[in-house]
């Protein structure tokens, strides 16, 4: 059965009811990896938050979001929180704000575990996971507060939290944007490895096509709240069908432009019709 099915999703905010997302639809099978790209404000994060049921109360969500055939929209918070963390989990962009600064890292991972399984032996499982996400000194990290960890270590802790209940789908919202390129490369390698090992699928949000191409096999391009193009990564990036996608691809190919020459911009390919 299709693991996640999103149909005709629309999200509106505020009194003016401006649509942040409209008519978005996609499906994800177990183990599938879908990238979601587009510029800031295109509706990527809102789509992800809708799937997680994490949008604020004043958001009006329409359409359908099904996990294993079960409709999530309209589900009471108690039921929803069982899906969240258990079937679907999420890793956010900024690990410093995603973690509670007053709580030791290990306890935060354990908390996710305890919320779903009422067993006592959390510490062992937490240490095991911290080791699996490449933290060599798991004991020390578990006993450290977030501010005592580096950006890369913090993001590994977040990844451990996302993995702790072996979910079938992990949503990544710009997980490496706040990191250095060298740390980014290591964290991406780890994500790839972990998804493989767990057989989990992912919805991977990024504005960086290069990053998406490292992780995903399919990609969906969003612009102004709608999907303009979707398909296998190789096809979309090598033969983009929409001029906006062509522009995105061109801006990501810094390596193709001789140093010192003018870089291509999205506007060279696609005129948004606004200043």
């Amino acid at each position: 059965m299709t693991f996640l099915e999103v149909r005709d999703l629309s999200v509106r905010f505020g009194r003016r009811q401006q649509a942040a997302v409209s008519g978005v639809g996609f499906t994800l099978d177990r183990g599938e990896r879908l990238g979601l790209i587009g510029e800031s404000g295109s509706g990527k994060s809102v789509t992800a938050l809708a799937v997680m049921g994490l949008l604020p109360e004043y958001a009006h969500v329409g359409g359908s979001i099904r996990v294993r055939g079960r409709e999530l929209l309209g589900l009471p918070e108690r039921e929803l929180s069982r899906v969240r963390g258990e079937d679907v989990s999420m890793v956010f962009q900024e690990p410093m704000t995603a973690l509670d600064p007053t709580m030791r890292a290990g306890r935060q991972v354990a908390e996710v575990l305890r919320l779903h399984h009422k067993s006592g032996r959390a510490r062992e499982r937490v240490l095991e996971l911290l080791e699996r996400v490449g933290l060599d000194d798991a004991e020390r990290v578990a006993d450290a507060y977030p501010h005592q960890l580096s950006g890369g270590q913090r993001q590994r802790v977040c990844l451990a939290m996302a993995l702790v209940n072996s979910p079938d789908l992990i949503i990544f919202d710009e997980p490496t944007t706040a990191l250095d390129v060298t740390v980014q490369a290591r964290v991406l390698g780890l994500i790839d490895e972990m998804l493989d090992a767990e057989g989990a699928g992912c919805l991977f949000i990024s504005h960086d096509l290069a990053v998406v191409s490292q992780i995903c096999d399919h990609v969906m391009v969003m612009l102004d709240g709608g999907v303009v193009e979707a398909g296998p990564v190789a096809q979309v990036f090598e033969r983009p069908g929409h001029p906006y996608t062509a522009g995105l691809v061109a801006t990501a190919r810094l390596d193709l432009v001789p140093p010192g020459q003018r870089l291509p911009t999205v506007a060279d390919f696609y005129d948004r019709g606004r200043p």
Partner: peptide
Amino acid sequence: KALVAAIPRIKQSK
């Protein structure tokens, strides 16, 4: 060398 290797590039086909 590590800095050069870490530059994000589009992976051709996965």
